[in-house]
């Protein structure tokens, strides 16, 4: 019975993936892709990976869907490319087919014989878990054992945001925020905003002992910011460059600052004293949550500031 459910989920997954690529209308493709994110969240639960399921639910159902829908609305004004499937005779189709089939064949061959791990990393994780300051292994890996990776990951996010801000158009096209004048929407959102913030903080706090943590909390927080923006509430804070960029740097700076505190006591960078590791991790995670949420939101905001201007003569 369990295998049947798994097989059904995989079939739905592959079906949605094909539909989202080969349906003719772009809007339909985006809808199927959003639905695929939902199914992926279910799949991650089946795979006993609730942390990833949480992140996928927040990102797939929240941020990615909105980013794509919003881009779609703007790209509609561009020249419409004809549906691709009619050009079946093109060499491009055969190239794509051969590459896709080749990838499937090679990967299936590769995973058909399982590899024995050379190092039992999971044993090392469970042995050192008591000293890490948290009881949830994934948080321990991300913020204690492999905190260099996480630090650099946040640096990558900041870098992406910096690239996006250099592409921003000049101030002659100010961000026009369409406002939804619906009273019921605003009444409901007054209820939902505090709930989303609360859930975000709950995920952050829960990350020490159970699935949750800075990434999931940050993704949920970003969704809250986007919701703020979509209904036309004040986003003056985001218009100011100092607050905008300061928010990106905040998490990274806090991470480096907290990480270098052990240097004062002659310890290496990013090694926390065992007794206070929990507090260090919580502090870093709080900074990371705020920064990740802010970076993802400002990426959404920056993509807004590139309106499609109609040229009089092409």
């Amino acid at each position: 019975m369990n295998e049947l459910i798994d097989l059904t989920l995989v079939c739905i997954l592959l079906g949605l993936a094909s539909l989202s690529l080969f349906t003719q209308s772009l809007f339909r493709a985006v809808m199927f892709f959003i639905l695929l994110g939902l199914i992926l969240a279910l799949v991650w639960i089946r795979l006993d990976a609730p942390d990833i399921a949480l992140a996928e639910a927040a990102i797939g159902a929240g941020i990615t869907g909105i980013l794509l829908l919003d881009a779609l609305a703007h790209l509609r004004a561009t020249s419409n490319t004809p549906p691709q499937l009619r050009q079946l005779k093109q060499p491009r189709f055969w190239l794509a087919l051969i590459s896709g089939a080749g990838v499937i064949l090679l990967l299936a061959l590769a995973i058909s014989e399982p590899l024995a791990p050379a190092v039992a990393l999971d044993l090392q994780v469970s042995e050192n878990l008591t000293n890490s300051g948290v009881t949830h292994p994934i948080t321990a890996i991300l913020l204690n054992f492999r905190s260099y990776d996480t630090l650099l990951e946040v640096a990558v996010l900041v870098l992406a945001a910096l690239v996006a801000v250099t592409l921003r158009q000049s101030d002659e096209h100010p961000v026009v925020n369409e406002y939804l004048p619906n009273p019921l929407l605003h009444a409901c959102l007054k209820l939902f905003f505090p709930m989303i913030f609360l859930v975000s903080m709950y995920l952050l706090w829960a990350g020490a002992a159970q699935p949750g943590g800075a990434f999931q909390a940050g993704a949920v927080l970003a969704a809250a910011f986007v919701l703020f923006y979509l209904v036309g509430l004040k986003t003056q804070l985001a218009q100011n460059d100092i607050y905008l960029k300061g928010g990106w740097i905040f998490g990274l700076a806090l991470f480096v600052l907290v990480g270098s505190m052990p240097l004062l006591y002659g310890q290496p960078f990013l090694t926390y004293p065992d007794s206070q590791a929990g507090i260090f991790i919580l502090l870093i995670e709080l900074g990371l949550t705020l920064s990740i949420g802010w970076i993802l939101f400002s990426m959404f905001l920056l993509s807004q500031s590139s309106p499609l201007q109609k040229k009089d003569s092409p």
């Binding site: 939804l180 619906n182 019921l184 929407l185 409901c188 209820l191 939902f192 709930m195």
Partner: peptide, 16 residues
Amino acid sequence: GLVMIASALSGHLVAW
């Protein structure tokens, strides 16, 4: 409760 509010809200928005 949240799903109920969300679906009612999106139904209302679509109708509106």
